[in-house]
């Protein structure tokens, strides 16, 4: 079987072999989380920051994440750029790195991100030296602003968080893939490995999945399935010959005159 050499994902100068990012929310147990990370070989994992429960002494989730995995702290809970900054500062203080997923949501019905506030937060956090991975609604103008602001990647949503509806924003994501030079990580809404493969076939650089794995009957199994689907989709993308996609339609000949 062929392996593609040197097809690594590079974000902010760091190299990753896996293009499958895993979110850690909603798992039924921390063990299930650890097993899913292991089964998928995910190298980047998102976490959130919350007040610790001072009445119950719970184990910290960090202990279940391997040390070599890059922690991507999200700013979930932030409703605007200012709150995102506050969370980012707290995250940096924890000493677990300076990678931040900017997630600014002021919408409790659909959990759609506020693109404008996301741009603001990104600009400010980049200036403070954070590695910023902004989560956004796919929009070419916003994406360009994020690139100009210094974002390390763009993370457009496939469909609303937790909806498992797949790539409802497919056409818009394709435009971002076509026009934006920094890595595109499709995040949110991917409900099945086939959808992850589809995103990779389109040319996405990576995907992030949380709900579909965490709430599955066998998270470990589906985590592995997602990881393999991402690899398959990536191979398909790398092998694609544009010519094969040209469909021949029966219609009057246009080039006969060249061969007469």
């Amino acid at each position: 079987m062929m392996t593609v050499q040197n097809d690594n994902l590079i974000i902010a100068g760091k190299t990753f072999t896996s293009r499958f990012l895993l979110g850690t929310g909603k798992f039924s147990s921390k063990t299930a989380l650890a097993e899913s990370i292991a089964a998928s070989n995910s190298e980047i994992v998102t976490v959130a920051l919350r007040r610790i429960d001072i009445d119950r002494h719970e184990e910290n989730i960090i202990q279940y994440i391997p040390k070599n995995v890059t922690l991507l702290v999200n700013t979930s809970g932030a409703r605007n750029a200012k709150e995102a900054l506050r969370i980012a500062h707290l995250a940096r203080e924890s000493g677990c790195g300076n990678w931040i997923k900017v997630e600014v949501i002021n919408d409790s019905k659909y959990l759609l991100p506020d693109n404008a506030e996301t741009v603001k937060a990104t600009e400010l956090l980049v200036k403070e030296g954070f590695i910023v991975l902004p989560y956004m609604s796919p929009d070419l103008y916003i994406a360009r602003e994020l690139v100009a602001a210094g974002a390390a990647t763009i993370m457009p949503l496939g469909s609303p968080i937790g909806s498992n509806k797949g790539l409802k924003t497919k056409e818009l994501i394709q435009i971002l893939i076509n026009e934006i030079d920094i890595p595109i990580i499709v995040d949110a809404g991917l409900g099945a490995p086939s959808q992850a493969a589809e995103a990779m076939e389109m040319g996405a650089d990576a995907v992030l999945v949380n709900t579909a794995v965490a709430t599955a009957g066998k998270p470990q199994l589906i985590a592995q399935a997602f990881a393999e689907a991402v690899k398959a989709g990536r191979l398909a993308y790398l092998s694609g010959l544009p010519l094969e996609k040209i469909s021949a339609e029966a219609s009057s000949p246009l080039t006969g005159f060249l061969y007469e």
């Binding site: 544009p242 010519l243 040209i246 021949a248 246009l254 080039t255």
Partner: peptide, 24 residues
């Protein structure tokens, strides 16, 4: 490489397919 292949390919059917797609 694609462009080189297309230009050097002598098959008239390829020319026609390209033209049909371009026309569409």
């Amino acid at each position: 490489a694609n462009i080189q292949d297309i230009l050097s390919n002598q098959d008239p059917r390829l020319t026609e397919r390209l033209a049909q797609e371009a026309a569409r």
